[in-house]
Each structure stands twice: as structure tokens, then as C-alpha cells.
Amino acid sequence: MSIKEADRVLPVTSGESDSRREKRSVVRPSRAKQYEPIVIGTLSVVIALTAWQLVANARIMPVLFLPGPNDVAQAFVKLFQTGDIWLDIGTSGAELGIGYGMAIVIGLVTGLLMGWYTRFQYALDPFVNFFYSTPRIVLIPLFIIWFGIDMPSKIAVIFLGALFPIIINTMAGVRNTEAALLRVARSFGASDALIFRRVVLPGSVPFILTGFRLGIGHALTGVVVAELIAARHGVGQLIAIAGQTFQTPKMLAGVILIAGTGMLLTTILQRIENRFQAWRPQIR
């Protein structure tokens, strides 16, 4: 529904006989409307790719400067034909999985504790603020000294990158528990443990998942940048080498691989978020 149509949607009356509040509109929506997001989205991508292809085909610039989508697609296929790519994907994937996984577990626990225990928050706030406002990329040289150029240094960067958005959002979720709900729970004599499990935690879920989602972006940045600087294998390393050896289509194929991963993970988390939001009335 567009903003313009908003005024054609009738306000819902507070009639107590309605079992559910439903979205209403004065005109019967056409069947095609429900596919609009997909159709328009696909069309705009197709148009953009076509335009890119046409400009590339004109060959104003050599392939090195401006490869067309077909060149990138060819490079992409070639990557998977040789099979070397699986080592890179495996390496980056493992780094991402371990680093991000650790960030989720430790970030969630730390965030919940900081939200729930004010004094714990006072103690950790300086560190969280320090690391969150420092681009963690600058620590890569230190991690390479500590852990070498293999996976552990990458894992450290990814972990630190994803950790702080998760901590900060989780903490905000706990802190944002509605005072009225806490009062109700206390009035019924709820124990702290019950308040935490039944009121605070479920209320924080949207915040926590947002933290996870932001964490993915930071984690992916960490993978690529850490591998650009020094690595033996990995998709970031592939991008770096392809760039340095003027294989622009291959480089872009690597970029698409990273972007695709990010979009996929974000979509999965978005789905999970929606599952937890069944109680929200649809306002779309």
C-alpha cells in the first residue's frame, strides 16, 4: 500500500463484537497487488543489469575498468569450475561461523547481565564504549602479531566486530522493559527469576535479533578486511588477489559472493524476527 492510499483505509472502530481487528480498505484490492513487491523489485534489478550490460557492451572502457554483468557471471562460473573456491569459502565460512557464533553467545550473555545488573553495566560501560567507538579493524595488526595470519586472527576481528552491536542492543532490550509490566509482575509477587524469564527476556527478543542482524554486517566487514590485509585463503583474500592482478570480473564475483551471504543471513534473521512478532497487528 502506498502512502497516498493511506487515507482510503478506514479507521478501525473499537466495537467490542469484532473478534479480531482487521485491516480494512474501501476498495477491493486486486489480486495482482500481492505480487507487486516481487514484480517491481525484480524489474528494477533487471533494468539496472541491462543498463550496465549496454554501457559495458559499448566498450567505452576496457574490461579491466568496467566489466559487464556477463563477464562477472562468467568469472563466477569459472570460480566454481576450478574448485579452489571451496577452500576459500570454507576458510571464510569457518572464520565467520566461529567468530560470529562466539559473538552471539558472549554478546547475549554479557548484554543480558549488563541490562539486568546495573552495577555490572557501570563496570563494563567504559570498555564497551571504548571498543564500540574504535574501528576494530585497526586492531588487525595486533591480532596478526598475536595469532598469526591464519584463521584465529580473523576470528578475533569478526568476534570483536559483531560483539558490541549485540551487547548494546541486548542491553537496550532489557533496559526498555515497560515499567508497567514490571509493576504488574511485582504486584503479583513474581520472583526476579520469573520476571526475567517471562517479562524481560521475551520483551527483549526484538532488540536482541536486531543486534544479531547488525552484528552480521560487522562480521562480514571483518572477514573481508582482515583477509585483505593478510591471509592464506578466504574470499576476502580472493578479492584482494584478483584486484591486485587486474582480474576485475573475478574480483566482482567475490564481492557478489560476500554480498549474497550477507543478504541471505539477514533475510533468515528477518524471518526469525517476524516469527516472534506474531502478536503485532499487521500494519503493512
Partner: peptide, 17 residues
């Protein structure tokens, strides 16, 4: 608070989920 008293609040204070 105790189980011998129960409050009906001005704001309903219901768990939305």
C-alpha cells in the same frame, strides 16, 4: 505484595506477546 491482595491497574499492563 501477597496472594491475599490483587491489583487491577489503571493501565492494563498486559504482556503483548
Amino acid at each position: 505484595p501477597g496472594p491475599d491482595r490483587a491489583m487491577v491497574f489503571q493501565q492494563p499492563g498486559l504482556l503483548p506477546w
